[in-house]
Design a protein around this nucleic acid. Structure first.
Lengths: 237, 237
DNA sequence: ACCTGAACACCGTTCAAGT
DNA sequence: ACCTGAACACCGTTCAAGT
């Protein structure tokens, strides 16, 4: 193999434990560690460089820019998604139950790392863990018997829905600033004039009702029912 | 009224056209102008202050922070959404056609101002134009005859879907950096091994097929069909 | 080829002090 | 009450120069 490990350089700088060579792997691992400890907003080129005992310019040899770095962090995290479809609920499952379990696992992983969900929506990921996830969802959804195109487009919708939900819900929980945002929005709904906004008035309790779990479950069913029951335009597959 | 307009101060600073007093209105209007001309990323406190001939600290009298400012800009933009439901397609429409037209108008407005869609997903808006939009969508969707709770939750899904689609599609078009992102993702799909990722291989053409319009139309139908056909958990409304 | 110091061109937000 | 200068504590990215 390589000569890594054979120390040729004298221990010059203080007693530091020998600064390891830079590598994309090491950079991403460090980024993940910072994110887990302090959140994605602390995963900056400068902070990362500091952690790796170098200057920010050095990172650009391995990472194109901050967005690419965040994408790499996201893919690393997607390794935690349970693809088996066994999690949650009771015992033996059909494709729908398994798919629900996979989507739930994906959503929960993103829930723990809110800011990452935003990145996922904007810069479509293409890492190996993402591909594994897409493969699994495609496989499960195709067992519904729906047309190939419906299945392909449907996977997109399922992932988009889960990602957007995580990005939304996330803010309400973690971001110190926007804690009030949610209550402001709810307040705006309640403050609405019944004569100018009759529909809002009529639906008021339901607009804010339901637990996150209930809404997620319903969303999943809405999408799966819609996907399997709605042919793509101009095709009777 | 007030004494605004009665000039008491001598024209000291050069020949500037008399710096107008700061106001939330003026700040938001200027923010909208900058965004239209140069994009949301240029709408910063510092840039705005410069444009208004003051220091950034002055803005904090009228705006809590950057997120709140962006939310105000978003609501101003939502004033452009066509709520009539007459746009597009041919003549007289039922609720479904009208709702489709409203959602399309909403999506197109966000398409023109990509970065704003991202804000909308994260900080739920609560401005007057947003409330008008919600009112209209609720009204149209309730004509489907679906239960009140389905309708209320459904409006959320419709808005989330359109917003997420705009946020995604947006990046591909405007952001100079992520132009390549899309092709990278498509490339990753094509480069996939048929034996390790059989489902992706089998669905390859469909995963990237369809125009934005076709996908939007299909998404709308998927959601409306799903929403109206899927009762909320534990309720037979 | 890889790494770096230093610079360029920015950020949001706070706060004491002024009017 | 409103406004401000100045400061604090940061950013991403580039580039010429070094090894």
């Amino acid at each position: 193999m390589s000569v890594v490990g054979v120390r040729r350089e004298p221990v010059s700088r203080r007693e530091r434990p020998a600064k390891p060579a830079l590598s994309r792997r090491g950079i991403v691992d460090t980024a993940v560690r910072i994110m887990r400890a302090e959140g994605l907003e602390k995963v900056t080129m400068r902070r990362l460089a500091q952690e790796l005992d170098t200057g920010p310019a050095s990172l650009y040899v391995y990472v194109a820019n901050t967005a690419e770095l965040h994408a790499a962090v996201l893919d690393a995290l997607l390794g935690e998604v349970d693809l088996t479809g066994r999690e949650g609920g009771k015992g033996g499952k059909d494709w729908r139950g398994q798919l629900r379990a996979v989507m739930t696992s994906y959503t929960l992983v993103l829930f723990e790392h809110p800011q990452l969900a935003r990145s996922a929506l904007v810069a479509r990921p293409s890492g190996e863990n993402y591909l594994r996830l897409v493969e699994r969802i495609l496989d499960l959804l195709s067992r519904s018997g729906a047309g190939r195109e419906q299945v392909a487009w449907g996977v997109d919708k399922l992932l988009q829905d889960a990602t957007a939900t995580a990005a939304e819900q996330a803010t309400r929980e973690h971001d110190p600033h926007s804690e009030g945002d949610w209550s402001v929005a709810v307040g705006a709904l309640h403050a609405v004039d019944e004569t100018t906004h009759p529909a809002i008035s009529a639906h008021i309790p339901h607009l804010v009702s339901g637990t996150a779990e209930d809404r997620m479950r319903w969303s999943f069913d809405v999408l799966v029912n819609g996907i399997t029951g709605t042919p793509v335009p101009g095709q009777a597959d």
